[in-house]
């Protein structure tokens, strides 16, 4: 079976400062990799390299994907001056049959007509996560997905990601906290 993502000897440096070097890994369908590392070790950069937003300095990356990558970074791609419903409409998930269930789980089912700017950071993060939950992608990239989430929502996210793994999706995520997701560890702090 071919890996969904295969990285060979990836290196990245900013000016002369090496972030990481010679990172190699294979991500198979139905598997997850938890990227760990200190602040500034290159976790976000690695995720950006994989989704094609940044180019590596050295090494190769091969992707065998049938569908678009689902990426949730530090920025939520939401409009503060629009309501929750309008934002969901922009994300093209407003008519998804599973939307209501996720909104109830996140406690946002009564907040559809509220302006996004009136919601807390954590609630906005939950709206952004709905894009991940209702995606039709075979590779999910998450950069610190638990920032701002309460314990209940973190558990819900972990349950969801474990379900996605059973559906043969591949997941790469960075997180400072340990999450209950069946994953291999990749520590960037060891790679400099």
């Amino acid at each position: 079976m071919q890996p969904k993502v295969k990285a060979t000897n990836l290196s990245y440096k900013i000016n002369e400062k090496k972030l990481f070097q010679n990172i190699s890994f294979e991500l198979m369908a139905g598997k997850a990799i938890h990227i760990q590392g200190d602040n500034g070790s290159g976790k976000t950069t690695l995720l950006k390299i994989i989704c094609g937003l940044t180019n590596q300095v050295k090494g190769e990356i091969e992707k065998k994907l049938d569908k678009q990558i689902c990426f949730l970074g530090h920025k939520n791609a939401l409009k503060q001056y629009l309501t929750v419903e309008e934002n969901l409409s922009l994300l093209n998930i407003i008519n998804h049959p599973d939307l209501k269930q996720h909104l109830i789980e996140f406690g946002l089912d009564k907040s559809l007509d509220i302006n996004l700017s009136s919601l807390s950071f954590g609630q906005q993060k939950k709206i952004a996560l709905l894009r991940v939950f209702l995606n039709d992608s075979d590779l999910i990239l998450l950069d610190e997905p638990c920032v701002g989430l309460d314990t209940q929502s973190q558990n819900y996210l972990c349950r969801f990601l474990n379900d996605e793994l059973e559906h043969r999706k591949s997941i790469l995520f960075s997180s400072h906290i340990s999450l209950d997701i069946n994953s291999e560890k990749l520590n960037l702090s060891d790679q400099v």
């Binding site: 937003l53 678009q68 990558i69 990426f71 791609a77 939401l78 409009k79």
Partner: peptide, 13 residues
């Protein structure tokens, strides 16, 4: 650019 929408456009199909 600031809210991340351009990032999403850049990686879309």
């Amino acid at each position: 650019f600031n809210d991340g929408s351009l990032e999403q456009f850049a990686i879309s199909d």
